[in-house]
Design a protein around this nucleic acid. Structure first.
Lengths: 136, 136
DNA sequence: AGCGCTAGTCTCTTTTTGAGACCAAAGATC
DNA sequence: GATCTTTGGTCTCAAAAAGAGACTAGCGCT
């Protein structure tokens, strides 16, 4: 006998909210939407090591456009992860340096990076397996 | 005396490569580009608790479009973080369940989520401060 | 005189994302 | 028995975001 699709859901959505998930004004989303960008993590990793100047970062991440570099740095600065310091040279040079807040964020974040490095083979294997099964 | 902007860079990009950063075939980028999406983390958090069906996830994350839900789930499945199980009901029902790999990823990832929740006030404060200084 | 360096901005094109209609078959409702 | 709902999607079109590349200004070097 085929079960009805309208079987009872695994759990009601409202119950899940109770278990500590507030959709409106969600802190996790608010914070993560910023560091989840394509370039944010990369820049944070670089700056976690030491301060860098704009051009250095550009050379360090060759396939980032100047536009996105500027924008991502500004976003990170706005959220308080990095400091921007302008030296009154001609032409002016700018140094980006990770703040305390940035370092405290990077601590757990680096664990994810380590996981990524360690489990890259598993992920690649999963992809191959998926693509093969799709092909059929 | 004003320093020349052509002062020696803090460090040469090549040196940074030596300290363990391979730009081509970078595992960190390859893995993170997937979980860095706007929705991935949200779905992983939900599925880390328990399996959910498509419609349940849609109701749980109300502002995701069906299109992006489908696509994100497929990406997560392809990378081996979740399993997709179809029940031959009419209409068919589909259950998404986190794999072992997914759980092992979520362990460090949840630390970042916790950080986000804990430090949300600091981030919001930083934004206010930044916006005020920009306003001037 | 001409080139390169600095840290960006501006514009244009391409890619990604979002909103919503549409699907087919079965169950529930009226 | 006609209609409405529900399932898990796909398809199309519009809007937003990202990428590519030109352009800026003042100084040093050749």
């Amino acid at each position: 006998m085929i079960r009805n699709a309208n079987r009872k859901p695994v759990i009601d959505a409202k119950e899940c909210d109770i278990s500590g998930w507030d959709m409106e004004n969600c802190p996790v989303r608010d914070v993560l939407d910023r560091i989840a960008g394509k370039w944010s993590t990369l820049l944070l990793e670089a700056l976690s090591r030491q301060p860098f100047r704009f051009g250095e970062l550009r050379r360090l991440v060759p396939d980032i456009s100047q536009r996105m570099l500027t924008q991502t740095l500004r976003d990170l600065q706005r959220d308080g992860y990095i400091d921007r310091k302008v030296f009154p040279t001609k032409p002016p040079s700018v140094e980006y340096r990770m703040t305390e807040l940035g370092h405290s964020l990077f601590e757990p974040l680096s664990k994810v990076l380590q996981w990524a490095e360690a489990n890259h083979p598993s992920v690649k294997a999963a992809r191959v397996k998926y693509d093969e099964s799709e092909l059929a």
